[in-house]
Amino acid sequence: MPHLELIATLEGHQDRVWQASWHPTKTLLATCSGDKTVRLWKPASHNNFSEWHCVETLEGAHKRTIRSVAWSPTGNELATASFDATTGIWENDPRDNDWECVATLEGHENEIKSVSWSSTGALLATCSRDKSVWIWEVESDNDFECLSVLQEHTQDVKMVAWHPKLEILASASYDDTIKIWKEDEDDWYCADTLEGHTSTVWSLDFNAEGEQIVSASDDQTLRIWKMYKPNNPQGIPTHNGEATWKTICTLSGFHDRCIYSVSWSKVNNCIASVSGDNSIRIFEKDTEASTDDDAPTWKNTTTIKDAHGVYDINGVSWFPNDQHPDWLSTVGDDGLVRIWRLVQD
């Protein structure tokens, strides 16, 4: 059986850590915290991964907790979403390797919970406790234009995530649903509402191809959803020429408290989840148990209990490319960031 090996523990944040985001191409990790800062971490050397240094602290742009941090696809910009209802855009000046907040996006009425860049970097999405999702267009000279304010969720929106290849957005909410958003002639609309969770949906992630989503909920389950296009061979009904998403697998009985974060590796296809029960769980597709792509079986192959001691684990994130395909990060209420390696025995 595989197991998780702790590579490094990163200390420096002065409050709980909410999220970690891996740079798209470098071995560089951005983390955000209740201490109103973002820290950038890298290994001490190319062959010493047990020791990491904080190489930059981004501060001064937000007045309250930074809840979410996201790299642009090029890795040249960072977006930060804060409880002060603003989103910061940070840019690196390569001449003096200095980070500066070059834009502040305003408009949300309450805490912003999540920020995400589209795969091309042309769009940015934010969501908030004010029940809305905003879509921003990235223009020249650090200008951002709000293209659409989406208000179909009936409660706090916890997370937004873009499709890995297309300009399709998914949002997860306190109203127990996930919504899929698409563009139609300069306006955005809800193309599908995914219902099935019985409590808050905290987190979601697409698989590498973007035709499946994994979601994590306060109902202590993970759900895997599959997209069925119109006239699909399985005969799944669709409406108005839109694809429809259906649950094809529910993973329950593994976590015994709220599941706060889930990450689907784009490289090794494993799913990692973390919870208020202080555990990390790794799931792998069981191809021996089921060969049916419309009713797959996933098995929990690895579990680390008390991964951050007695503290809630708020976020988990797989390394995004095949440079370190077996790495993942976790962040917790203990203010610590941990780097793990999935070892196949």
Rank of each mutant, 00 (worst) to 15 (best):
E152K: 12
L166W: 06
E111A: 10
V138C: 10
W136E: 12
L166T: 02
N110R: 12
L123Q: 09
A161E: 08
K131N: 13
C127A: 06
L123W: 01
A161N: 09
R129P: 05
V149M: 12
H163Y: 03
L124C: 13
C146M: 13
K131I: 02
P164L: 06
T126E: 05
A125R: 08
C127F: 03
V149P: 07
R95L: 14
N97S: 06
D143C: 15
P94E: 03
H163V: 00
K165A: 01
E111W: 07
T104K: 06
E91D: 00
P94V: 07
N97T: 08
E139H: 07
L124E: 12
W136N: 07
S140L: 15
G88A: 06
W162S: 08
E152M: 12
E145K: 15
S148E: 13
S114E: 09
S140M: 14
N142E: 04
C127Q: 10
W136P: 05
W99E: 01
Q155N: 13
G88I: 04
F144N: 07
D130R: 03
A161I: 00
C146Q: 15
D141F: 06
K113W: 07
F144G: 10
M159L: 03
V138E: 05
E100Q: 12
W90Y: 02
C146I: 00
E152L: 13
E145C: 11
L147M: 13
K158D: 05
M159E: 14
G88N: 00
F144Q: 08
E91Y: 07
K165S: 07
C101A: 09
G121I: 04
I112T: 09
E137M: 10
D141I: 14
C127S: 11
K158V: 01
H163D: 02
L166G: 00
I89A: 00
W117L: 08
V133W: 03
D130G: 14
T126W: 01
W162D: 01
W162A: 12
T154V: 06
M159S: 14
H153N: 07
T120D: 15
D156Y: 12
N97L: 07
I89W: 00
E91N: 02
N142H: 12
K158H: 11
I112M: 04
I89P: 01
H163W: 02
N142Y: 10
E167I: 02
D141K: 12
K165N: 03
S132Q: 04
T126Y: 01
C101M: 03
G121Q: 04
V138K: 07
T120S: 15
R95S: 11
W117Y: 14
C146D: 12
D156L: 12
T154Q: 08
T126N: 03
D130V: 15
V133P: 09
D141A: 15
N110M: 13
S116F: 01
T154M: 06
C101R: 04
E106A: 12
E91A: 13
V157D: 10
E139K: 14
V149T: 14
F144C: 10
H108M: 10
W134Q: 14
P94D: 02
C101V: 05
S148K: 09
G107H: 12
I135F: 06
S119H: 10
D143F: 01
T154S: 10
R129D: 11
S119T: 13
T126M: 03
E109P: 05
F144K: 05
T154I: 09
A103H: 04
K165T: 08
V149Q: 14
L124A: 10
G107A: 11
T126I: 03
V115I: 08
W90A: 03
